[in-house]
């Protein structure tokens, strides 16, 4: 059970999410999902602004446009579950419950960030909530995350791993090795592929001859499902089923969330290789706007409550940015710390 009070209701419902929704008890859950979508969107947009303002160097990989996949897949995870994020999954830490202060300190590379300024801005993990600090090498976390699932299974726990990665990652050898192993041992892992049609500037047609990346799962002997990755409830439903399956020892599931990144691959990529029409068409399918409509139809959201959520989130973000800006950089004397285990 999550310790954060704001999440408790949603998490309670999570465990019986299907029943809850069928019985019409999913209001808290849906509002919770909405708030999390808003939080991820606003944090991500803030991260972009801060980069443009020159507040931190390095780079940032925006996930704006892909929030439904990220939130839908990770929202129902328990505190003891794990996430193996990649470069575009800074917000997965937020969904899993990392304090915003730490998330922004991470961007700035400050001594108060979980990695004390060692890794890069977007490559964030936070050990207390079991998000793995990612290497940038694509598919690396996915493989290590599979190892975590292997270990958890050996320990006899009913804990699961959610692994996030993109369409491009499915081309690496390490991807195939990991999924093959997970299939053989029915490991408790959910592979969440955010197929945003591009791997940097490389279009999907040059990445794979498949139409649906979910088809890859066939080769490893476990289910693969293609989803509308901009429909948060669709992702949430498929994920909770996959998570339940994994907890029950029935093995992995591959979820292909078809989605789109609105901006460049990173903050230094003007993305000139994409057609404006494509970008505009996907922006019309904004996962937040789509879900907002669902909530309004169900009378779960009004102009006032929407405003209130935005205001509260803005304040929370401003405080976190303030914290990050005030935090010191790590001292040069820390350079050689954490190479070896402390005796």
């Amino acid at each position: 059970m999550a310790s954060k009070s704001g999440r408790a209701v949603a998490e309670l419902e999570t465990e019986k999410s299907d029943n809850g929704r069928k019985n019409g008890n999913g209001r808290e859950l849906m509002l919770g999902l909405y708030k999390m979508l808003v939080k991820c969107r606003m944090c991500d947009e803030k991260a972009r602004i801060l980069f443009r303002q020159g507040k931190y160097a390095g780079n940032f990989y925006s996930g704006v446009g892909q929030e439904a996949a990220e939130v839908g897949a990770a929202y129902s995870l328990r505190e003891d579950d794990w996430i193996a994020p990649s470069h575009r999954d800074w917000t997965s830490n937020i969904i899993k419950g990392a304090p915003l202060n730490l998330c922004f300190a991470q961007l700035f590379g400050k001594a108060t960030s979980p990695d004390r300024g060692k890794s890069t801005p977007a490559h964030m993990g936070y050990p207390p909530i079991h998000t793995i600090t990612p290497a940038s090498s694509i598919a690396g976390q996915l493989a290590v995350g599979t190892g975590v699932a292997f270990g958890l299974k050996k320990l006899g726990r009913d804990t699961v791993v959610v692994s996030f990665f993109g369409d491009g990652a499915t081309s690496l050898g390490g991807f195939h090795e990991a999924l093959n192993f997970a299939g053989v041992h029915k490991l408790p892992i959910i592979y969440v592929c955010q197929n945003n049609l591009w791997a940097e500037s490389v279009p999907l047609r040059l990445q794979t001859a498949l139409k649906d990346l979910a088809d890859r799962a066939k080769a490893y002997g476990f289910p693969g499902i293609s989803l509308d990755g901009n429909d948060v409830m669709a992702v949430y439903d498929a994920s909770t089923k996959a998570i339940a399956r994994a907890r029950a020892g029935e093995g992995p599931t591959f979820l292909e969330c078809k989605t789109y990144r609105w901006y460049g691959h990173s903050e230094i990529d003007p993305a000139k290789y994409r057609m404006k029409e494509e970008v505009e068409a996907w922006k019309k399918r904004d996962p937040l706007v789509l879900f907002e409509k669902v909530l309004r139809d169900k009378k779960l959201l009004t102009d006032e409550s929407k405003d209130k959520i935005a205001k509260e989130t803005t304040q929370e973000i401003n405080e976190a940015v303030e914290f990050a800006e005030q935090s010191p950089y790590p001292d040069a004397s820390e350079l050689a710390d954490h190479i070896w285990a402390q005796e």
Partner: peptide, 17 residues
């Protein structure tokens, strides 16, 4: 360069490396 796994991100650490 020192025998430290790679060049860290935080500016003072990168400078020291």
């Amino acid at each position: 360069g020192p025998d430290i796994p790679a060049i860290p991100f935080a500016p003072p650490l990168e400078h020291a490396w």
